[in-house]
């Protein structure tokens, strides 16, 4: 595999201004703080974390749907902010979580899938040919081209969303919870399809998910986020075999095995997710952490390297 970074994010911040009640003022919410990571050519990176950790905000920034408050996003050697939307569409494309709301219910599949080409000014015949070709690739029957989304099942709709993403031949696919709205048997079809397409089109993937078994199955490398920060990054096997950060360990232990008798996990973390408007001082995880020491509540750990892994914890290593 080549070592060239196709997409890189460096020290990205995103701050929202959140209104406090009816007469309250506005307070800043740091959805992302100094997030850096990269995706190499042909690589699948998993992004994992719980609700509110900033993973969807990051996905939107990578798609150019949100402007970062600070920091740089480079794609294929260019600053994402300087890339024209038409060109951006040929570099990075999304697959969203819910195929029920991400497809226009009033347009037929052929139109939905062909729209990026229509916007690029491609002729009707050529478009038609490319749409049929891509429907074959994603495993949809050709007659599905004339259907409306409501006539399709959840899995078929997600295939339509993937076809639409692929038709402009992007280099990177950003999949934000691509299977969490789907049944298990449909999830496996979509994950298999993404794997096939990845090698067929030499795609790079970012898989955003809260489901660790999906991440483990799909990703080469995993980035773990907590409260807007990257807390651990490692290749998939190291992360699952020897996680360093207490938060990653808690996430891993929370995953329920399908082998009966392994028992319900004891989670080594306290319940409550902190208020992102008033994040804890020091390490963002310390109020829930079972091994936190005095230093953790005052001094924020930086992401440091431990062998091939990166981890932001005072007590790691």
């Amino acid at each position: 595999m080549k070592t060239h970074s196709l997409l890189s994010v460096s020290r990205v911040r995103k701050t929202y201004s959140v209104k406090q009640g009816l007469f309250g003022g506005r307070l800043p919410l740091h959805a992302l703080s100094d997030v850096s990571f990269h995706i190499d050519e042909g690589e699948a990176v998993g992004l994992v974390g719980e609700s509110g950790c900033g993973k969807s905000t990051l996905a939107k920034i990578l798609l150019g749907l949100l402007e970062p408050s600070a920091g740089d996003v480079m794609i294929s050697g260019q600053d994402l902010r300087r890339v024209r939307p038409s060109q951006r569409a040929r570099l990075v494309q999304p697959v969203f979580q819910d195929p029920y709301s991400s497809l226009n219910p009033r347009k037929r599949v052929a139109r939905i899938v062909g729209l990026p080409l229509e916007l690029a000014g491609m002729s009707r015949d050529e478009r038609q040919r490319r749409v049929m070709e891509i429907l074959d690739h994603v495993g949809l029957p050709r007659h599905a081209a004339n259907a409306y989304p409501s006539q399709l099942s959840g899995g078929q709709r997600q295939r339509v969303a993937i076809a639409r993403a692929l038709i402009s031949r992007p280099r990177v696919l950003i999949c934000d919870e691509p299977t969490s709205a789907l049944d298990v048997s449909v999830q496996s079809q979509i994950l298999n399809l993404l794997q096939d397409l990845r090698s067929e089109f030499n795609l790079s993937l970012l898989i955003v998910s809260h489901d660790l078994s999906v991440i483990r199955h799909m990703a080469d490398r995993v980035v773990v986020m907590y409260l807007g920060r990257v807390v651990e990054e490692a290749d998939t096997s190291s992360l699952f075999e020897s996680a360093l950060h207490p938060y990653t360990k808690a996430l891993l232990s929370a995953n329920l095995s399908t082998h009966p008798g392994s028992g319900l996990p004891m989670i080594d973390a306290k319940w409550d997710f902190p208020n992102p408007i008033a994040p804890p001082t020091g390490c963002p995880f310390h109020p829930r952490c079972s091994i936190a020491v005095q230093r953790c509540s005052t001094e924020r750990p930086d992401l440091a390297q431990y062998g091939g892994q990166h981890c932001a914890c005072h007590l790691a290593g």
Partner: peptide, 19 residues
Amino acid sequence: IGLLSCMPDAARRGRLGQI
């Protein structure tokens, strides 16, 4: 049997089962 084979499993990499 099909449903169980669809589940991603650490012990069994590669393609997932499909129904």
